[in-house]
Simulated scan of single mutants.
Amino acid sequence: MTTVTLITKADCHLCEVAREVIEAVVAELPDAAADAISLEELPIESDPRLQERWWDKVPVVFVDDDLLGHWRVAPDRLREALLARA
């Protein structure tokens, strides 16, 4: 199972865009690959360590434990990372 983790904060337009990009990329993958992906959202406000590390970089996206990026999600980069794990 591959986990995509999205660190978000309240009222964050870029977080909504990032979620949409992630969902669109997963929807385009072959069924077997898409079925092996889970999306986990972590609200940054819930963890002081997340706030300290990522507050000014939200949204932040990890694929498993690997940082994919922050602020904007590149669909091609995400697709490549997910297919590499499939």
Rank of each mutant, 00 (worst) to 15 (best):
S38H: 09
L42P: 01
D35C: 03
W71M: 10
W54A: 05
T3W: 07
E16F: 00
L78E: 01
D47P: 00
A34V: 00
K57N: 13
R77E: 05
V17G: 02
D47Y: 01
F62I: 15
D66P: 00
L82S: 07
V4G: 11
D35P: 00
V21Q: 12
A84N: 15
V25P: 04
E23K: 12
C15K: 04
A18S: 11
I37H: 07
H70Y: 15
E28L: 15
E80I: 09
W54M: 05
L83F: 03
L83N: 08
E23P: 05
E16Q: 10
D11I: 01
V4M: 04
L67I: 12
V60T: 04
D65E: 15
L14R: 02
P75Y: 06
R49V: 12
L39T: 11
A32D: 13
S46P: 00
M1I: 07
I44A: 13
G69N: 08
D31L: 08
A24N: 13
T3K: 11
L29T: 09
A81P: 01
V63I: 13
C12L: 03
T8P: 01
T3F: 09
I37S: 06
R79M: 03
D47E: 01
V58W: 07
L6K: 02
V58L: 14
C15Q: 11
E20N: 12
E23N: 14
A84P: 02
R19Q: 14
W71F: 14
S46M: 05
L83S: 11
I7M: 05
R77V: 00
T2H: 09
A27W: 06
V21H: 03
E28C: 09
A81F: 05
L6M: 07
C12T: 02
I22S: 04
V25I: 07
I44C: 09
P30A: 13
L78D: 01
A33D: 08
D76T: 15
E45L: 09
T8M: 04
E40P: 02
W71N: 06
A33E: 07
E52T: 12
F62H: 06
E16K: 10
P48H: 03
K57C: 11
V60H: 07
A86H: 15
H70T: 10
L82K: 05
P43E: 06
F62S: 12
W54V: 02
A18D: 06
L78W: 05
C15P: 09
E52F: 05
D64L: 11
R19W: 09
E41P: 01
K9R: 14
I37E: 04
D47Q: 02
P59V: 07
E16M: 05
P75W: 06
A84S: 15
L39C: 00
V4R: 09
P30G: 09
A81W: 03
R79V: 06
A32H: 13
V17Y: 02
K57I: 12
A10F: 02
D56S: 14
A10G: 06
L42D: 02
E16A: 10
E20Q: 13
E41W: 01
R53I: 14
I22D: 03
R49H: 10
A27Q: 12
V26G: 03
V26D: 06
D65H: 13
D66S: 15
A81L: 13
V58P: 00
A84F: 05
V58R: 04
K9G: 07
S38A: 15
K57L: 14
R53Y: 10
A32L: 08
S38R: 09
I7Q: 08
T3D: 04
E16D: 13
I7A: 11
I44F: 02
